[in-house]
Amino acid sequence: MGEIKRMGRLYVVGTPIGNLGDLTPRAAEAFRTADAVCCEDTRVTSKLLAHLDISRPLVRCDENVIATRAPQLVERMLAGETIAFASDAGMPSVSDPGQVLVDAAREAGVDVEVVPGPSACVTALVASGIPCEHFFFEGFLPRKHGERVRRLRELAAIPGALLFYESPHRIEATLVAIAEVFPARCVALCRELTKLHEEVLRDRAPELLETVRARGELRGEMVVVVAPPTADELASRTSIPVDACETDPDEALRGDIREALAAGEPASAIAKRLSQRYSRRKREVYDLVLELQDA
């Protein structure tokens, strides 16, 4: 009888969001076991592996290339290799391109094992002091002010805290939109989480905006936590405009995809952003992007 070849697997590995002391022994073992490590930025992950005294081949899998490399990686796993995927920080697939590889592996029947680790959104939610019995993670808001405000208004009726990721150069613009839509809500800006200069700024949205403007440039990746709506606010939003009922969500999605393609945005980035906005599977949106791209 011929030798039975064993299928490999995919490790999805959570990594520290700032403090290397948060790396788990299980995460280190997953890296040691892997035949190769996929990552967003090879420079970031090479430093992490060096800290662990581990040497493994690195494969860049950021949002620009992961869709094209996923089939080859799946073939390697089907042939018996073990692949580990790590984001630059935090849990892969959470506002992250790793979901493309996870989907491809599962569709091919490859075992996917998640190695839990730190998560910036959950860490910020707890650090914010804002009630967190219920919460909704949005990821990054749209780049344009009008689209950003429209999306915030769509989220206004969610009966829980709202969480957003943001970068230093866009934080003021995001707080402008939040103050416009939620002027009475408490907002927490959490930055440099788990690092030496961790900071949580908390105030009503307009006041927090003024504080950030007065502080000037802020550094580090950020998470914005918006308090849940009050009962009165929810009651005022119970009526749904007629035109909102008549809107075809698929056509609205197609319109946003066409606009993004015209602007030159990469297909994988479009799928990531719009799958969050429309609460659709990233793979489904990505297939639609390719369909419209070829049309």
Rank of each mutant, 00 (worst) to 15 (best):
R56H: 03
R56S: 06
R56Q: 06
R56D: 00
R56P: 09
L58M: 01
V59I: 14
V59T: 09
C61F: 06
C61W: 03
C61H: 04
C61T: 11
C61V: 07
C61Q: 08
D62L: 06
N64T: 12
I66K: 01
I66A: 07
I66E: 04
A67Q: 04
T68F: 04
R69C: 03
R69Y: 05
P71S: 00
Q72A: 10
Q72N: 06
Q72K: 08
L73Q: 06
V74F: 04
E75G: 03
E75Q: 07
R76S: 12
R76A: 13
R76W: 08
R76D: 07
M77L: 04
M77W: 12
L78C: 12
L78I: 12
L78E: 13
A79L: 11
A79C: 09
G80C: 10
E81A: 14
E81Q: 15
T82Q: 14
T82R: 15
I83R: 00
I83K: 02
A84V: 02
A84N: 00
A84K: 00
A84L: 01
F85Q: 00
F85C: 00
A86W: 02
A86K: 01
A86P: 04
S87E: 03
S87H: 11
S87P: 12
S87I: 09
D88P: 06
D88W: 03
D88H: 04
A89C: 14
G90H: 10
G90R: 02
M91A: 14
M91G: 14
P92F: 02
S93P: 06
S95D: 08
D96M: 05
P97K: 01
P97A: 02
P97H: 00
G98R: 12
G98P: 09
G98L: 05
Q99W: 03
Q99M: 05
V100P: 04
V100M: 08
L101S: 01
L101P: 03
L101E: 06
V102D: 05
D103R: 03
A104E: 06
A105W: 08
A105C: 15
R106L: 12
E107S: 12
E107M: 09
E107K: 14
A108L: 04
G109P: 05
V110H: 10
V110G: 08
V110P: 09
D111F: 13
D111N: 15
D111A: 15
V112T: 11
E113L: 14
E113A: 10
V115E: 14
V115G: 13
V115M: 11
P116S: 11
P116T: 12
G117L: 12
P118T: 09
P118G: 08
S119G: 13
S119R: 01
S119W: 06
S119E: 05
S119F: 07
S119Q: 05
A120Y: 14
C121H: 15
C121K: 08
V122M: 15
V122L: 15
V122N: 13
T123C: 13
T123Q: 10
T123D: 13
A124L: 13
A124I: 12
A124T: 11
L125K: 02
L125H: 03
V126M: 11
V126Q: 02
A127V: 01
S128G: 02
S128D: 00
S128Y: 05
S128Q: 00
S128P: 01
S128H: 07
G129F: 09
I130N: 02
P131H: 07
P131F: 05
P131G: 07
